[in-house]
Design a binder for these strands. Structure first.
Length: 890
RNA sequence: GGGCGGUUAGCUCAGCGGAAGAGCGCUUCGUUCACACCGAAGAGGUCGCAGGUUCAAAUCCUGCACCGCCCACCA
């Protein structure tokens, strides 16, 4: 297996028998490092096998496909400057892996203990990262990096601590009481991004708060507030009105009696209150609403948190204590009604936050947490995109990014989760001093006490992910990798984590390193199921990419993903698409088999394309010219990140032009024992393989290894071959002439099919050719073979062709006449020709009108006018030809 | 409430200023030695609606209608 994939090529392409040996070969040759499952590692180096992640999403598969394609392309160009930071998200996935592992042993993470669990997770993180990213990035690079990778166990933690401490020392991380989103089920704080807002039909209750006089007795007056959350009344510490609201002006400074719980609360004036909404008076609940928290802070109102961590009303909730938030609502509404303080209830839709992980309704709650002060970090991050140091593809997402960055709010980074990066802060048990440190301190720097307690909270997983581009390169150490590969080139990911991950990487990257973490951000769309729905566990419509590779092969999966959606566009995954890609691989396989079998044991050498071309047969010149054009186009498309178009162009070229036309044309000479097409067949095939390799690495490499046995001058491995640049000159003449021949072939085939000519039978045919007569003469054998014509008469004048019992086609440059005694229905023929004549006449008058238009003549560019004139003359000759045919019809 | 995307052949989607494309499906034919995971020939679209810009619009602009996302502290 070290030198070639031996044995005959089976009739059908079988990914299972092909991928593993190729994979093995690459590994043996040191093109990349081993992974745990070399037999069926579906995405070569980068896609971690199932027993490593346990969680492999189609999103990863898509990311990896595009990253890998771009990297392979650049490597083949011999340009070592493309560096892709790679797929993240070892974090969450890894926890799941370890938990599943433990479950097999009948244990839970709690049995293992925190530090032991953490150690095991880190072990996996190191391994996964080494597989999906670093290794990927270093594909084909020299070998000193294993050590680096496998010391990553500690690396990321060090990077996280270092970053946190720097931010803390710069005053960009702080601890404080703010309203955060609390998930009562997960028992943790969440960032704003981890909350999904859902429009919900709810109610707006209008509640009367009795006013008190200075002695504290009710005056009979009321202030009416509107609320969607009456249960939070027990946490109210004020009522706010707009200072300019005439309805309430007189009430400012007075005291209201809070219903049910009977607290005395002040009425304050605050600009934040909208006069249009509700009654214009707002109950202020600083403990349970972010706006109210701010209003309360401005007016010195106390903060009452009336719920516990499970969102049950607590001891501050008076008569509601102990009730769940929903029960509390019913209870208090009933109470208000009984007290005659409920003025009315109206329907009201508003959005309610849900935990993005478990979908529980989150509770905004005042809590002491750690925050990142984001505004100073956002400023350079905005600049970097604005001035083009970072380009987001597609461009429209730059606006989305800007909008978010410009309205960014402080980021709550502490989580009360069980596992994660611990916040590197210690509290002194004796003097309460707070110490942020990279290395665990042994004594309080202030009082020297050893009574230190580390903050029990962990960091938001996106905090560490935000360091990915440099933490994986060994930062904070000054490593060779960091100097070489940072800033990286392209970050590829789904648009759904633009804020979560990309924005944070840019902010933290620029803060820590002073440089952008990457130059381009390529955002792909989301893969949806066949019905267009998002794939989610709860819907049960999640597709495992490994199942796909198992069924259709890795190349088919990759090609489908790559073709799937343009940048930033979602696409639906259908079995039909996968089948189509698989069929394409098979098509390539069989065309290659044909070439290899035709070459046989007598090896051929690759032709000197540039030197020999003009003397070659027309079809050889044509296909070589086309292959150059395709190579140029592919390079341009890849440079523009138009991966899906790249796939399309290659698919069309290989299937339609190479297989359907050129191969069939080449057979004509091959059947006569002429081996002259073989070098060209081999040349265009190997060019196609190189072009396709980034997208379908396995099948192309396998074919390459077979081809190498028969063609001299091919590189040892396709994975290290050069990428075609399409530097050969375009052969316009050959392309035009082949076009004319194809037209003739198609016309005869069409006539045959329409007349029901026996497919085996040869027919006589006349081609009336004027300008292209020489071309048709040259291509006689091709036309005769591909259209089953014998003999083909190339004539100058229509009158030299038979006129009775013939079927005819009038083409742009030629007329095709096929005598078919007994198969011709004169009336039918006349109808057909008449219809075509009418169409051609309409075309002529349309073009005449257009060309007669002064405006068009004076304003349209010359080449367009010339093109239109050409069209007109073609249409005219078509009209003349058709008229001629009609008069010939008996 | 803002913003973005979609609306093109029966289905899924490309194309995004110069004569409507692909895959699948459909119809008719075909097992001549690369491939039935195939070949040949075909049918099938006034490119959501209404205006506008332009010599020229599926393609640019405006408005509208559905569908889908994202963002937003009007209680």
């Amino acid at each position: 297996m070290t030198d070639k994939i031996t044995g005959d090529m089976p009739k059908a392409y079988d990914p299972h028998s092909v991928e593993a040996p190729i994979y093995q070969m690459w590994m043996d040759k040191g093109h990349f490092k081993p992974v745990l499952n070399p037999d069926r590692d579906p995405f070569c180096i980068i896609m971690p096998p199932p027993n490593v992640t346990g969680e492999l999403h189609l999103g990863h598969a898509l990311t990896v496909t595009i990253e890998d394609a771009l990297i392979r392309w650049h490597r083949m160009l011999g340009d070592p400057t493309l560096w892709v930071p790679g797929v993240d998200h070892a974090g969450i996935a890894t926890q799941n892996v370890v938990e599943k592992e433990l479950a097999k042993e009948g244990m839970s993470r709690h049995d293992l203990g925190r530090s032991e669990f953490e150690a095991r997770v880190w072990k996996w993180v190191g391994q996964i990262r080494s597989r999906i990213s670093i290794q990927h990035m270093r594909l084909g690079a020299s070998a000193d990096w294993d050590r680096e990778v496998f010391t990553l166990d500690d690396g990321p933690q060090l990077a996280v601590r270092e970053t946190f401490v720097r931010l803390y020392n710069d005053g960009l991380v702080y601890r404080g009481e703010r309203i955060i989103n609390w998930c009562p089920r997960c028992q943790t704080a969440l960032s704003d991004l981890e909350v999904d807002h859902v429009e919900t039909q709810g109610s707006l209750w209008y509640v009367r708060y009795p006013l008190l006089d200075e002695a504290g007795n009710p005056t009979g007056e009321y202030v009416v507030v509107a609320t969607t959350r009456p249960e939070t009344i027990v946490g109210d510490t004020g009522v706010a009105v707009n200072p300019d609201d005439d309805r309430w002006k007189a009430f400012i400074g007075r005291t209201a009696l809070l219903p049910v719980i009977e607290h005395h609360i002040p009425i304050v004036a605050d600009e934040a209150v909208e006069t249009e909404f509700g009654t214009g008076a707002v109950k202020v609940t600083p403990g349970h609403d972010p706006t109210d928290f701010d209003i309360g802070a401005r007016h010195g109102l106390p903060v009452i948190v009336a719920m516990d961590s499970e969102a049950k009303m607590n001891e501050h909730a008076g008569p509601l204590a102990g009730l769940d938030r929903m029960e509390a609502r019913k209870t208090i509404v009933a109470d208000l009604e009984r007290l005659g303080l409920l003025e009315k209830r109206v329907d009201h839709t508003h959005s309610i936050g849900h935990c993005s992980r478990c979908d529980t309704v989150v509770e905004p709650i005042a809590s002491t947490q750690w925050f990142v002060r984001t505004e100073p970090l956002a400023r350079p991050a905005i600049e970097a995109v604005k001035d083009g140091r970072i380009e987001i593809i597609p461009r429209r997402f730059e606006r989305v990014y800007m909008h978010w960055m410009e309205n960014i709010r402080d980021w709550c980074i502490s989580r009360q989760l069980w596992w994660g990066h611990r916040i590197p802060v210690w509290y002194c048990g004796d003097c309460a001093e707070l110490t942020a440190a990279v290395v665990d301190p042994t004594e309080c720097p202030k009082c020297g006490s050893a009574q230190l307690e580390q903050d029990p909270d962990v960091l938001d997983t996106w905090f560490s992910s935000g360091l990915w581009p440099f933490s994986t390169l060994g930062w904070p150490d000054d490593t060779e990798s960091l100097r070489t590969f940072y800033p990286t080139s392209v970050l590829e990911t789904g648009y759904d984590i633009l804020f979560f991950w990309v924005a944070r990487m840019i902010m933290l990257g620029m803060y820590v390193t002073g440089e952008v973490p990457f130059r381009h951000v390529y955002l792909h769309g989301l893969i949806r199921d066949a019905k267009g729905q998002k794939m989610t566990k709860s819907r049960g419509n999640v597709v495992d990419p490994l199942d796909i590779t198992e069924k259709y092969g890795t190349d088919a999966a990759r090609f489908t993903f790559a073709t799937g959606g343009g940048p930033g566009n979602d696409f639906r995954l259908f079995d039909e698409k996968l089948e189509s890609s698989r069929n394409f691989a098979n098509k390539l396989w069989n065309a290659s088999r044909f070439v290899i079998q035709s070459i046989g044991d007598e090896n051929v050498a690759l032709p000197q394309v540039e030197a020999g071309a003009p003397d070659w047969p027309l079809e050889d010149r044509w296909i070589v010219s086309r292959s150059h054009a395709v190579a140029r186009e592919v390079n341009q498309l890849l440079a523009d990140f138009q991966i899906n178009e790249t796939c399309r162009v290659l698919y069309d070229f290989i299937w339609n032009e190479y297989c359907d036309w050129y191969l069939e044309m080449a057979k004509v000479r091959l059947r006569e024992g002429d081996r002259s097409p073989l070098p060209v067949l081999a040349h265009v095939l190997q060019t196609s393989l190189r072009l396709l390799h980034p997208l379908m690495p396995f099948v192309t490499e396998t074919i390459w290894q077979h081809l190498r046995d028969h063609v001299d001058g091919l590189d040892e491995a396709l994975i290290t071959a050069r990428f075609p640049l399409g530097e050969g000159e375009a052969d316009v003449e050959a392309e035009e002439q082949i076009g004319a021949l194809m037209d003739v072939v198609r016309a005869v085939r069409n006539i045959r099919a329409e007349r029901g000519v026996d497919p085996v039978r040869y027919v006589e045919a006349y081609v009336v050719a004027d300008g292209v007569r020489h071309t048709i003469e040259n291509g006689r054998q091709i036309v005769e073979a591909l259209a089953r014509v014998r003999p083909l008469h190339v004539i100058a004048d229509t009158r030299d062709a038979p006129s009775t019992q013939v079927a005819a086609a009038v083409l742009a440059q030629t007329q095709v006449v096929v005598p078919l005694a007994g198969l011709i229905d004169v009336d039918g023929e006349r109808d057909k020709l008449t219809k075509q004549l009418n169409e051609a006449k309409a075309e002529v008058s349309r073009l005449q009108g257009k060309l007669a238009d002064e405006q068009f003549r004076s304003k349209a560019p010359e080449n367009v006018i010339a093109k239109e004139e050409e069209k007109l003359s073609a249409a005219r000759s078509r009209v003349a030809g058709l008229e001629g045919r009609l008069t010939e019809l008996i």
